[in-house]
Design a binder for these strands. Sequence first.
DNA 1: TATGACTCCTGTAGCGACTACAGGATCAAG
DNA 2: CTTGATCCTGTAGTCGCTACAGGAGTCATA
Lengths: 129, 129
Amino acid sequence: MTAIGEASRQSGVGIETIRYYERAGVLPRPARMPNGRRDYSEVEIGWLRFLKTCRTLGFPLADARRLLALARAEAPDCAAAATLCKTHREEIRQRIAELQALDAALAALAADCEAGNPRCPMIDRMSDV
Amino acid sequence: MTAIGEASRQSGVGIETIRYYERAGVLPRPARMPNGRRDYSEVEIGWLRFLKTCRTLGFPLADARRLLALARAEAPDCAAAATLCKTHREEIRQRIAELQALDAALAALAADCEAGNPRCPMIDRMSDV
DNA sequence: TATGACTCCTGTAGCGACTACAGGATCAAG
DNA sequence: CTTGATCCTGTAGTCGCTACAGGAGTCATA
């Protein structure tokens, strides 16, 4: 008899988020207690912890769902997991490159900006495109 | 007489997005032609281009709105613009650091993953938290 | 037994920044 | 007169939650 609040505490996944995962088909529907409340097994709480780990690692929920399916399989498909991870890392590195370019562009734009300027160099540079 | 489609072409901001900006209060409502269609002036198209630049630089729309207000002012507040930019750059660098940590964690997790493994090292590492 | 605090339930709306319709009006060209 | 492009308003979908509203059941204490 483990209700949703306790499952949330043990997994670190918020109550509303657990219900959302169920609604979104990421988690199977748990058993219900006689009074209609959700009842989570140890195994299911382990799944929640696994999903938490996936999300902390930045995997989109759809990937987390697939990874959980792999984790639940008897013989996890290691190649499939590695592919998901590789794709995710590529997106991360792509995003890092974008953000670094953004940072450099912003640094260049804001050069010479200081209080008391009659005009703002950044605004001026952004205006004439 | 510049209708929304032409304003979109000249600014690079999508038609639906222009209407969204108006609804969201980022852009003032433009004049209307006798037939009720929106009519954009050169100046307003310049504002759209400015907003496009802000968004390309990764500023959230709320910031873009503030920057446009500064750009429209007679004497742009350079210090305010510089502060917005500084805060944004701090968020970008923070995000870069997070993503780099994520990438390293993923690399470590997926080490030894290859097709044909009876078990998946990554899934195993993610399961025992 | 009654009160109050707590947890749980379902269902819906909000966030950011769009994007994609549906269903209708208007317009220019052939 | 028809075709196709463009415009209008209004609404719903995206992602991954988060935050209610309004109601029901549970538990400890007075």
